[in-house]
């Protein structure tokens, strides 16, 4: 076993910390359309949450999918992977 020397107190170690939104509010990248979930059609299959490249969809087993528009980049991948077409792209107001 190797003895590990911890860093000195108050030492400034240039380490990054996990934070949300490291690239800013990426929701501003959306140009024309945003995805909207039709909760009456949603079957809570979790596929959109698994595939969402923006990591901004969370599926609740009761309430269905919710989208975090602060970070949704508007790629539309969720509309393509949804097996029941419950997500559609609508023009942004």
């Amino acid at each position: 076993m190797v003895k590990v020397v911890p860093p000195v107190d108050n030492a400034k170690v240039p380490l990054t910390k996990p934070v949300e939104g490291v690239g800013g509010k990426t929701g501003l990248w959306r140009t024309m359309y945003k995805p909207v979930v039709d909760s009456s059609k949603c079957t809570k299959c979790f596929l959109c949450e698994i595939y969402c490249p923006g990591v901004c969809i969370v599926v609740d087993p009761v309430k269905g999918a919710t989208i975090n528009y602060d970070y949704c980049k508007g790629c539309g991948l969720c509309t393509d992977v949804c097996p029941v077409k419950a997500i559609s792209m609508v023009p942004e107001e």
Binding site: P18, V19, E20, G21, V22, G23, G24, K25, T26, W29, I50, Y51, C52, P53, G54, V55, C56, N68, D70, Y71, K73, G74, C75, G76, L77
Partner: peptide, 18 residues
């Protein structure tokens, strides 16, 4: 895997990270 990374829209890398 936290939202708000600087990947392009539709990037496969965050999917793999999940």
């Amino acid at each position: 895997v936290l939202p708000g990374d600087t990947s392009c829209p539709g990037c496969p890398i965050p999917i793999a990270f999940k």
